[in-house]
Simulated scan of single mutants.
Amino acid sequence: MILRSVIKLCTLSILSFCLAQPAMALVARAQFANDVVDREPINDIGDTIKVMYGEIQRVYFFTDLRDMSGHTILHRWLLDGVIQAELPFDIGGDRWRVWSSKKLMPGFDGQWTVEVVDDGLVIESRSFNYVDDFDS
Rank of each mutant, 00 (worst) to 15 (best):
M1G: 14
M1I: 09
M1A: 14
L3E: 15
R4N: 13
R4C: 09
S5I: 11
V6G: 06
I7R: 05
I7C: 04
I7K: 11
K8Q: 12
L9P: 01
T11Q: 10
L12N: 12
S13C: 13
I14L: 15
I14V: 14
L15V: 14
S16G: 08
S16W: 05
S16E: 06
F17W: 13
A20K: 05
Q21C: 09
P22C: 08
P22A: 03
A23K: 14
A23D: 09
M24W: 10
M24N: 11
A25F: 08
L26R: 09
V27L: 00
R29C: 09
A30H: 12
A30D: 08
Q31R: 12
F32C: 01
F32V: 05
F32E: 01
A33M: 03
A33F: 04
A33E: 00
N34W: 03
V36C: 04
V36T: 06
V36A: 02
R39W: 09
E40R: 15
P41D: 07
P41W: 00
I42F: 04
I42V: 15
I45P: 00
G46T: 01
D47F: 05
T48R: 08
T48Q: 10
T48M: 03
T48S: 06
I49G: 01
V51M: 07
V51W: 05
V51N: 04
M52T: 14
I56N: 08
Q57S: 13
R58G: 02
V59N: 02
Y60I: 00
Y60C: 01
F61H: 13
F62P: 05
T63V: 15
D64Q: 13
D64T: 06
D64F: 03
D64E: 14
R66C: 09
R66S: 11
D67A: 10
M68T: 07
M68A: 05
S69D: 13
H71N: 15
T72Q: 09
T72L: 06
T72M: 07
I73V: 15
H75C: 04
R76W: 02
L79H: 08
L79W: 05
D80T: 07
G81E: 01
V82A: 13
I83M: 13
A85W: 06
A85C: 02
E86T: 10
P88W: 03
F89D: 12
D90F: 10
G92S: 05
G92T: 10
G93K: 03
G93F: 07
G93A: 15
R95H: 10
R95Q: 13
R95S: 11
R97T: 14
R97L: 03
R97G: 06
W99R: 03
S101F: 11
S101A: 09
K103R: 14
L104W: 00
P106K: 03
P106C: 04
G107A: 06
F108R: 02
Q111K: 13
W112T: 00
W112Q: 01
T113M: 03
V114K: 01
V116F: 01
D119G: 12
G120R: 07
L121N: 15
V122K: 06
V122H: 04
V122R: 06
R126W: 04
S127V: 00
S127L: 07
S127M: 09
F128N: 00
Y130V: 02
D132N: 12
D135G: 09
